[in-house]
Design a protein around this nucleic acid. Structure first.
Lengths: 201, 201
DNA sequence: CTGCTTTTGGAATGTTTGTTCTGCCAATGT
DNA sequence: ACATTGGCAGAACAAACATTCCAAAAGCAG
């Protein structure tokens, strides 16, 4: 009944994710978007709305992708401790193989917009809560099997792991040095392990 | 021989630090600068150069202030371990009392510009190196007196502490929750302490 | 093929951007 | 007192900005 779009809506959104991820919100102009996505201005506005709406869609898509990867890890094989280590190692590896130094789109966005844009702030906060919830659950399991220390409660440890991952992404953005990142991963893992002192209480 | 400036060059630069710190580089227009610093356009360009130059001056001023505070801490009283704890606690406290959620100007800038602006990247890298050097020196002293673990070398621990501080600033930006921040500080401190197992080797 | 609907290309919109220019004014050395 | 130097106010500038509009083109139903 009408003309069909000359582009794939999802694929083009992926390009938007990549672009905003690399450049941030304010440093990206609509001209950049038009050039990079190879889509007409009118089609852009017609399909995704204005710049801010497009950005939100891109961020939510990134978040959905990330959440899926996390779910996959959670229900995969391995002990809770293995999964946490794997998450940390994956972060370190992603940082190292990221030649454009893009870092994490969610954290980049948080740093750029959280105190200027309430809608974005809410997405960032929700994302953090979800990740901390997943970590807490994992840690609780590990604590029950005795693989993770019980000197701190699961929530506190989850917050610590989240903070450590954030730290990794900042350091990775500044200067991705394999040794430095591996060190951090190792130390976080060490802190989660129950020490012999735990039993003395 | 000529008219005197109607403003204090240093005080106005401080306002620029505050503004860029709060909004970042790209989100701040020259009009914002003119309005906030309450200085004429011509005077602005005449005194500080263009936008980029002003930003660099602001960032360097921030860095100098921070470096001075660090030097003061280093040569003050207290053990190396106390100084590290104090640094961490100060970061947590600064985050909590920062109602505008500004975070750390240097880290904000790193996240926004490091992969777009080589001159800024260099400043950020230099700053990180200096901080890690200071931490390493402190940790080395602590190790010699037996107050800090020797299971990792001083450099690795310094990198870990730096990463943890970065994590604090990210978490603090997202949602400054006192308990979460204090937890992180406590755990970093715990990791630095020598455990009884150390002696068993 | 025809009619309808949506996409598309690109010009056009008005605003905001960073930067500079011009004319006036204030302060100081002589 | 006055000339000279540099600060100051605000207009002026072109380029870039986000967004909209219009006419042409393309696909599908009848």
């Amino acid at each position: 009944m009408a003309r069909t779009k000359a582009f794939n809506e999802e694929q083009v959104l992926d390009k938007a994710v990549e672009l905003f991820w690399r450049q941030g919100y304010h440093a990206t102009s609509i001209q950049d978007v038009v050039d990079t996505l190879r889509i007409n201005r009118a089609s852009l506005y017609g399909t995704y709305g204005d710049k801010h709406t497009l950005f939100v869609k891109a961020l939510q898509r990134y978040r959905a992708d990330q959440a899926q990867a996390m779910a996959h890890l959670l229900q995969g094989p391995g002990s809770p401790m293995d999964k946490i280590k794997s998450l940390l190692n994956r972060t370190a590896k992603a940082t190292l193989s990221d030649s454009a130094h893009k870092g994490c789109f969610m954290i980049n966005t948080a740093m750029e917009l959280v105190n200027q844009d309430p809608e974005i702030a809410r997405i960032v906060t929700d994302d953090r809560r979800d990740i901390e919830d997943a970590l807490e659950q994992l840690i609780r399991q590990g604590q029950q099997s005795g693989a993770i220390t019980t000197t701190q409660d699961a929530r506190a440890l989850a917050q610590f792991v989240f903070s450590s991952i954030s730290g990794l992404r900042v350091v990775g953005k500044m200067n991705p040095d394999k040794k430095a990142l591996d060190n951090v991963v190792e130390m976080v893992a060490k802190l989660l392990q129950p020490s012999r002192e735990d039993a003395m209480i």
